[in-house]
Design a protein around this nucleic acid. Structure first.
Length: 912
DNA sequence: GACTCCCGCCAAAGC
DNA sequence: GCTTTGGCGGGAGTC
């Protein structure tokens, strides 16, 4: 009672209804109102109230529920024509509802009335946004009255204006509304949405959000593992220099803010946050963004190291606000990523798919970063010269010729890819369709969903119609927006997917194994993989990309390094005596050239483990030999720098070709020597085993004689291909040892054919991917990165060889999961996992996460191998220390101090 | 106890 | 000086 009165009296300007009825609260009613909607309680079948007769009579036939108004509107309206009627109805209904509430209050105690108030969810911003949106057509015509009066809206919706601001701010970020004057906004509907999304995507791509996401995820692991400060420091820097922090509002021509006030707080504006949030979806593959990652990115420059919890929490709050509005716009929907360590709130993009626009796009941004990112799309000097935030003194639309050239090149490449013929691919339903029928969220869900469904069909029609008409004066090219629910176009689905999902692995045609160009996480760098036709059909866009973090090609490199000879290098030597020269003081920059750390394993846990150990030992020996070379090369090797800085890595990759050519001849020779040594250690028997395993269907099946490396990356080869189409034939012959950066691929094609024998050695993890069940086998810890991320899938669970420790180390070092010099011991489990138990596991490369369907917990026995596989051990006793095998399924217990442990991250996407 | 996110205080900006 | 705008975080509701 007290609380109710206080609440009513404090600041709720719009809650007019409360005032007149304060006096009647005393009317005692025995039956306590529930916390449900007051109108729910007056439903005939609900009997909590004794005398709700009047409200009932006053109500429409359909009892009021949180969504009844919307339902009515939806069912009654033919979208376009009756939008006004909808509004009127809504207004009437809300009035009736209000009246009913008033009447009800007469019969309720204040306390009870309070309880009878709509629940939080019924007052959610999302529902409010729905009501707000219902007032206006999605695609308003100029004839419509498209002006929004905040006061009016707030009053009609019976909310305080503050809430309307929240909605309007987010809508502004999408250019669905624009501020005209004080208390007055213009409604644009979804006319600008495609352009906005396209612009945001561009900006997001150019801001390297993908890399930032990776970086943040990596750092999460680092914090999790409690790495030494040095490591943290190194990884923190790249993010600390987050360019995103400089990014401000992205504008479209003609959609600039008219009031400087709007820009005054732009730094933390909900608009900017909203745009950034959307960008994250648009650049992510799959388009699922967890809340914490988004928050961290949005915090940006505010060094995550000293990220205080309050700030983080505040960001999360704002993200919820934004997400609610975006959800109402059907652009995202809430999901949960379930990991070992718990459920993680996330959102999935359900809005239109924004494809790369091959045409120039005009858009404006007020930030330096954005201007750089999209300058190529802004030919208009006038527009570029707009400086809406002079106080910031930011440079606007700086366009450097080289940048334009670079972008053009990228765009050209994309066009090539897009236009390239592809075999038809059966695209597995990947998104919504295949998602389990998640229970709708609360009462509003059903109505909203219904509203959305109807609205979607309407929107699609309208979209097509409107897009063809010059809705705006801005000359944005028509964005290639593909409705999410529509199946992918039959044309070049792979390419399309690849383009839109930078890290995805696209299914090839069914008819034959086809190379799939995998856009590399790093701009302009793509690589291709082959998929067996049998697996192709199972590829889903949803897949691993979420969890298969785009990783530097090093991962692939690592995989590749596990060539046949490497795998064949099975020795009986257990426990390599090599002592890791783990120098924690060393920066990651030289890690690739560091002497490989040798680690002990207790190999005989299982035969496969033994095999892995042997393989690892062989590699180690090989690396040992090359070690001296590499360490000498040390800094001189261009690629020996720390991969922790992804952007730096990009540059490295870009220059990889050149660097390769500059490598000393002696290096190649030495590598060849190393290779010979490795060769001598070949174990035909093991090779045969491996070969046999290759027969097992795997998601990432390697075609008979070709393997592809991620392009633009320096790939250590223990066995190089010959007769490379990419022109590496000669050099690669010499670069057979697992020395990094010995093979390069075209940034465009990213295809490096290798010999069949090498293919055999490629460790491809077993995948079983369903739209929501994407898990990597434990063995895929290093193999997953090869996949780049995306849509690898296989209906057949199978086992696969695990990459050698050198590969693993290489990969881990490259992605920064372990410091340079630290070697991951060959893990007995990191080898082969029975298909049965691991059938549905897909490791998430950088995060080692898995997407999985909700299902009963896997028995510990079955999980353990996976756990171990996904663990990176750094035993206190040094590299030779046996990795703790007692790791428990929770990913925490049983790990000895000093152990680098990456908990199993089964990623389960579930909607609320 | 963690997750969600409503709510409204209050400061900045605008008028 | 009042109004508008909106950042912000407490804390309630929900899971």
């Amino acid at each position: 009672m007290q609380q109710a009165g206080g609440e009513m009296g404090t600041g709720d300007k719009e809650n007019h209804c409360s005032e007149p009825y304060k006096n009647v609260w005393k009317t005692p009613l025995k039956q306590a109102a529930t916390s449900h909607s007051v109108l729910t309680e007056i439903q005939p079948d609900c009997q909590p109230l004794t005398t709700p007769t009047k409200p009932k009579e006053g109500l429409p036939a359909d009892p009021w529920t949180p969504t009844s108004n919307l339902k009515m509107l939806i069912s009654a309206a033919s979208p376009e024509i009756r939008s006004r009627e909808q509004r009127r109805e809504l207004s009437i209904n809300t009035s009736e509802v209000l009246h009913a509430k008033h009447c009800l209050q007469e019969h309720l105690l204040g306390e009870e009335y309070e309880k009878s108030q709509p629940s939080r969810k019924e007052k959610s911003l999302g529902l409010l946004c729905h009501k707000f949106l219902a007032r206006y057509p999605d695609y308003p015509s100029s004839a419509d009255n498209n002006y929004i009066s905040l006061d009016e809206v707030a009053e009609e919706l019976k909310v305080e204006r503050r809430r309307i601001y929240d909605i309007v701010n987010v809508l502004e970020s999408l250019h669905m509304v624009s501020r005209l004057a004080k208390n007055r906004y213009a409604w644009h509907g979804r006319h600008n949405l495609p352009k906005t999304l396209q612009a945001l995507k561009k900006v997001g791509e150019n801001n390297k959000y993908t890399q930032q996401i990776q970086l943040i995820k990596r750092r999460e692991y680092e914090h999790e593992f409690d790495l030494d400060g040095e490591r943290k420091e190194e990884t923190a820097k790249p993010f600390g220099s987050n360019r995103d922090s400089e990014m401000s509002f992205v504008e479209l021509p003609g959609m600039e803010f008219r009031a400087a006030s709007v820009n005054s707080r732009k730094d933390k504006s909900l608009r900017v946050m909203s745009q950034k949030f959307v960008m994250l979806f648009l650049v992510s593959t799959p388009q699922i963004v967890s809340l914490d990652v988004a928050a961290k990115i949005l915090i940006g420059e505010e060094q995550l190291e000293d990220l205080d919890k309050s700030k983080f929490k505040t960001k999360i709050r704002r993200l919820y606000d934004i997400a609610n509005v975006l959800s109402s716009l059907q652009l995202i929907k809430k999901v949960h990523l379930t990991e070992e360590r718990g459920r993680k709130p996330a959102f999935k993009w359900t809005g239109p798919e924004v494809l790369p626009n091959t045409q120039d796009t005009k858009l404006e941004t007020t930030s330096t970063t954005c201007s750089q990112a999209i300058s190529e799309y802004i030919p208009s000097k006038e527009q570029c010269s707009k400086n809406l935030f002079p106080s910031r003194g930011k440079q606007n639309f700086t366009r450097h010729p080289s940048l334009i050239k670079l972008v053009k090149t990228i765009e050209d490449d994309r066009r090539k890819v897009q236009s390239a013929p592809t075999s038809p691919v059966k695209r597995s339903a990947s998104t919504d369709q295949n998602l389990p029928a998640f229970p709708s969220k609360m009462a509003q869900g059903s109505a909203i969903a219904k509203h959305q469904l109807e609205g979607q069909s309407k929107n699609e029609k309208e979209n097509k119609m409107k897009l063809s008409s010059p809705a705006l004066e801005c000359h944005l090219s028509l964005p290639e927006v593909v409705p999410r629910l529509e199946p992918p176009s039959s044309t070049a689905p792979c390419q399309q997917a690849a383009l839109t999902q930078p890290l995805g692995v696209c299914p090839p045609g069914h008819t034959s194994v086809s190379p799939v160009i995998l856009p590399h996480p790093h701009p302009g760098v793509s690589y291709a993989i082959y998929l067996q036709p049998s697996q192709a059909h199972t590829v889903t866009r949803y897949s691993p990309s979420v969890m298969l973090q785009p990783l530097p090609c090093a991962n692939v490199t690592g995989i590749k390094s596990v060539n046949s000879q490497v795998l064949n290098q099975i020795t009986t030597e257990e426990g390599d005596n090599q002592i890791a020269t783990d120098d924690p003081t060393k920066s990651l920059t030289a890690k690739e050239e560091r002497p490989p750390t040798k680690s002990e394993t207790s190999p005989q846990r299982c035969p496969k483990r033994s095999q892995a150990v042997q393989e690892i030992n062989s590699i180690k020996r090989c690396r040992r030999d090359e070690e001296s070379l590499d360490t000498k090369l040390g800094e001189s090797i261009p690629n020996g720098r720390s991969p922790s800085n992804s952007s730096q890595m990009n540059h490295e990759m870009d220059n990889s070709q050149e660097e390769k050519q500059n490598k000393p001849e002696t290096l190649d020779q030495n590598k060849a020597t190393c290779y010979d040594q490795c060769k001598r250690e070949d174990n035909p028997e093991e090779e045969a085993k491996i070969k046999t395993k290759q027969d097992i269907p795997v998601a990432f099946a390697i075609p008979a004689h070709e393997t592809f490396f991620p392009s633009g990356y320096l790939i250590p080869l223990t066995q190089c291909s010959h007769g490379s189409k990419a022109g590496f034939a000669d050099k690669e012959k010499a670069e057979v040892c697992p020395v990094q950066h010995t093979a390069y691929s075209s940034p465009i094609t990213g295809v490096i054919p290798v010999t069949g024998s090498e293919l055999k050695a490629v460790n491809i993890p077993a995948f079983h991917i369903t739209p929501l069940n994407i898990m990597l086998s434990p063995t895929s810890i290093a193999a997953a990165p090869v996949l780049g991320n995306s849509c690898l899938s296989s209906s057949n669970a199978s086992s696969a060889q695990i990459p050698s420790s050198s590969v693993l180390n290489f990969t881990l070092q490259h992605i920064g999961l372990i410091p340079a010099g630290v070697q991951v011991p060959a893990n007995p489990f990191v080898q082969h996992v029975p298909a049965s138990s691991q059938a549905e596991n897909v490791t998430h490369s950088s995060e080692n996460r898995s997407l999985q369907e909700e299902k009963p917990p896997v028995p510990k026995e079955a999980q353990e191998p996976q756990l171990v596989t996904e663990n990176f051990f750094r035993t206190p006793g040094g590299p030779n220390t046996e990795p703790p095998l007692s790791a428990k399924s929770d990913g925490t217990a049983g790990i000895s101090p000093g152990t680098l442990y990456i908990p199993q991250r089964k990623l389960e996407v579930s909607e609320d």
